[in-house]
Design a binder for these strands. Structure first.
Lengths: 99, 99
DNA sequence: CGTGTAAGGAATTCTGACACG
DNA sequence: CGTGTAAGGAATTCTGACACG
């Protein structure tokens, strides 16, 4: 929405590791489990955004609470599902008004 | 001032090059000429912030206009000089009020 | 002065696998 | 399941220098 830098994927995994306190192994594993989606450089190195860093800290907290990766992923799917439904509702309402 | 990510030095020189359109050689040279001040990782690799990226784009524009590096640096010194004077003025005024 | 480039080396990152549990 | 680690290789970055102008 805003024109900040929060969503630009420009941070390497090493820096991301420092910023989050997670090991590179953990970060790569969370990607494997579809919890985080870095971009890649031409050469194949991962690039994260500050939003990703925040998300990783959030994941770290949930893992500490004993939550498992698939539960965290499910939770996320629920959120986007709700957003989808809300969006569909909006579109629907707009469509009805056109009649 | 604000709690954004604009000033965190987390971007490698390769990404910085892509974001600014400048070559790594140019970016390193502007550092040599004291126009930009990246941080370093333990290993010695340079790290830039989004603010640095903006500054580099600004430098690039001035170079295009035919300005030389020492002029750009001088311009910058003038700015901080003005800020210093304003700050001193503020402090001075505050001090006088105390009397 | 500002920038390109080849050179050699060091730091960073990648993947797939074994280990533990 | 989640994470550490050693392994071998590839991508990235670093410095100092030569070149051109």
């Amino acid at each position: 929405m805003s024109s900040t830098y929060k969503d630009k994927k420009v941070i390497s995994i090493g820096i991301t590791s420092e910023l989050t306190g997670l090991s590179e192994r953990q970060i790569r594993y969370y990607e494997e489990r579809k919890l985080i989606f870095p971009e890649r450089s031409k050469g194949g190195t991962r690039k994260y955004s500050f939003a990703d860093v925040e998300r990783l800290v959030d994941i770290a907290n949930k893992m500490e609470d004993g939550m498992q990766t698939f539960e965290i992923r499910k939770e996320e799917m629920k959120k986007s599902d709700v957003r989808d439904k809300m969006l569909r509702g909006q579109l629907n309402a707009a469509f009805k008004m056109r009649k």
